[in-house]
């Protein structure tokens, strides 16, 4: 069994390398390649992309020989709450202003953990926001609007 089965981790990893390599290779091919003497913008990336594809193939081949360990759980809840947090901050920091935006971001991130209770999150993120405003906005003087135009200020 062992000799014929693929490690799903290595399979995905190799496929990812090949995919990214192909992506860069196709992009680079559209650029001027130039010669070895006078390399164009596409020359070096094309070489690198080729190496990456080759490495991807090697990873897949090697994956057939190594003993497999399970992938382990995937932090779906974490992904769902952590990744949007900086995006939310980016979307609202200009409109809502620094204070409400940071508070919202902290709240979203706080609920990535199943252990967080709403009450705890409220005072934790509240304290965090207060701390950040004092340190970053007042003490360090970063040029953030504390409350933005969306709030009518």
């Amino acid at each position: 069994m062992k000799s014929l089965s693929f490690s799903s981790r290595d399979l995905i990893c190799g496929a990812l390398f090949i995919f990214i390599g192909l992506f860069f290779a196709i992009q680079a091919y559209g650029l001027e390649l130039g010669t070895a003497l006078r390399m164009g913008p596409g020359y070096f990336p094309l070489v690198l992309a080729g190496i990456l594809i080759l490495l991807g193939i090697i990873v897949i081949i090697q994956g057939t020989q190594i003993e497999h360990e399970p992938m382990g759980p995937i932090a779906w809840r974490g992904l769902l709450f952590i990744l949007p947090a900086p995006i939310l901050f980016g979307l609202t920091v200009r409109g809502l202003g620094f204070v409400p935006s940071l508070f919202l971001t902290g709240m979203v991130a706080a609920f990535a953990s199943t252990r967080m209770r709403p009450g705890t999150a409220l005072w934790l993120v509240g304290g965090l926001t207060l701390f950040s405003v004092i340190v970053f906005s007042y003490a360090l003087g970063l040029p953030f609007r504390r409350f933005g135009p969306w709030l009518g200020q």
Partner: peptide, 26 residues
């Protein structure tokens, strides 16, 4: 779990403050 809202918040502030560029946060 008490720490990472803070980590996320500081990361967001830090990244944004480099260029004031919202794109960096995405």
């Amino acid at each position: 779990y008490m720490l990472f809202p803070a980590i996320i918040a500081f990361c967001s502030i830090g990244v944004y403050s480099v260029n004031s560029n919202v794109f960096d946060l995405y």
